[in-house]
Amino acid sequence: MARIEADDLRKVFRRPDKGPGLAGSLRHLVERRYTEKAAVDGISLRVDAGEAVAYVGPNGAGKSTTIKLLTGILVPTSGEVRVNGIVPHRHRIENARGVGVVFGQRTSLWWDLPVRDSFELLRDMHGLGAAEYRENLDRLVEMLQIGDLLDSTARRLSLGQRMRCDLAAALLHAPPIVYLDEPTIGLDIEVKDRLRTFLRQVVAGGTTLVLTTHDLGDIEDVCSRLVIIDQGRIVHDGGLRQVIETYARERVMHADLASRPVSLSGVAARLPGATVTEERDGLGVAVAFDPLAHTAAAVLSALQQEAEVVDLRIEEPAIEDVVRRMYAGQLDAAPGERTGT
């Protein structure tokens, strides 16, 4: 069953072309001129119950605008949208009962109130019963580990603490759909990991999740489907694994070495198609390789033939990189056609 249905959704923003100062304003009154920009330009999307969708694209691609259209914050210029069977911007209150929303840059908590008071206000707005509220809150407090934070005011929380509390606030009423706009922006690794674990649990519980992000880790850990948007249009919609295999095949292995390698060209010779470069004044090596051509184990073993490897990490391409390259036509859409470079 489709939880979210969007059909040819468009949102056009109009900016007045105004000269500076009062003179400009007055002239604008007589001679109205605008520049129009379609932030969302014909998007169609179906999300089924229990799906976890990553919605990504470069800055200004229209991600947040889409989320705001789906949540009823903005009224679309044209097109249709239905969430849980209702038109969100026409029935905002009804819509709000069935969704939870977190904006990474903005808190939905009352700034000067203890977190607990914010939760209780939301409880009353959602009309939750005492038992239901208790149960949901206890579960969220445990999963997000926010028990110690309930009595501090929102303005005293750190970014990571605030984000955990915001997530709890959005999920208090156990909504079937949750939208997260950049939920991990600005957070450190440890907090990110904790949040991703939490989101996996939420999705496993049958909640439909739509999240926008810049962070490939968010997507890989949580989502099964990837929608890529650029300049207001969807340029890819499909399985996450498939996109990564197709567009983001190249991995880079960075290895720290105990001593200088015998020969870099020796490594390159063992790994046809891979690019080998020196790092850290010769005490490190970076190998860019295609995982379909060489396994990570093969790359490592090739390195170990030439030097003692002390430490290593594998870097995956950032999704915005993939998007940018795809849009520039540097990448082929069909898998398997790519030959070793």
Binding site: T71, I73, R92, I93, A96, R97
Partner: peptide, 14 residues
């Protein structure tokens, strides 16, 4: 400054 966003996704008259 965009603060109305959070208001609009709560189930109480904006």
């Amino acid at each position: 400054l965009g603060g109305l966003d959070t208001v609009l996704v709560r189930p109480f008259s904006p």
